[in-house]
């Protein structure tokens, strides 16, 4: 037995193109498990590497930090993430890679395993003090990656 809802002007009894259907029980969909926000604070005094460059003469500090939340699904789920008001002033889907705002390059990434969702920020700056906060929004779906 099938449940099919066609888009307006299409016949649910005969239409087979999924783009012309609002819903079809023959196709799986993403199913929400949970959503939320995560803040990652980077203490820039704990940079993992530094180097001096000559042109222009300055020190560069390599920053790297991560945090995680529990999802407790017991498997690796389909997920998506977004950087909210990132250091260059915009919001972006993850992974996010950019430069600007006193940052030479920045990568913000998101990962999962069977118990946790992780976020990581890695960037290079001329700053070696203070705290930079990253706000991330995430969506976790019940669909299993099964890898």
């Amino acid at each position: 037995m099938k449940l099919i809802i066609a888009k307006p002007t299409f016949n649910a009894l005969t239409e087979t193109d999924p783009d012309n259907l609002q819903f079809s029980s023959e196709y799986n969909t993403l199913k929400y498990a949970t959503q939320g926000t995560i803040q990652l604070a980077v203490n820039q005094a704990t940079y993992y590497y530094s180097e001096h460059i000559d042109f222009p003469s300055m020190w560069l500090y390599y920053q790297y930090a991560y945090t995680s939340i529990d999802h407790n699904l017991g498997y690796k789920p389909f997920f998506a993430g977004y950087a909210i008001d990132n250091p260059t002033g915009y919001s972006s889907p993850l992974p996010y890679f950019d430069a600007g705002g006193g940052i030479f390059w920045i990568a913000v990434n998101m990962y999962v395993d069977s118990t946790k969702l992780y976020v990581m920020a890695s960037y290079v700056t001329d700053q070696n003090s203070g705290t930079v906060n990253f706000d991330m929004s995430y969506r976790i779906f019940k669909n299993e990656l099964d890898i």
């Binding site: 998506a80 998101m110 990962y111 990656l145």
Partner: peptide, 26 residues
Amino acid sequence: FFSFCEFPDGKTAMNGQFSYDFTGHS
């Protein structure tokens, strides 16, 4: 399409990402 890759560190990355433990510098 969407895709994911699990590296040997046990973390699954999205398209366009480094592996979880990546820190790059010369």
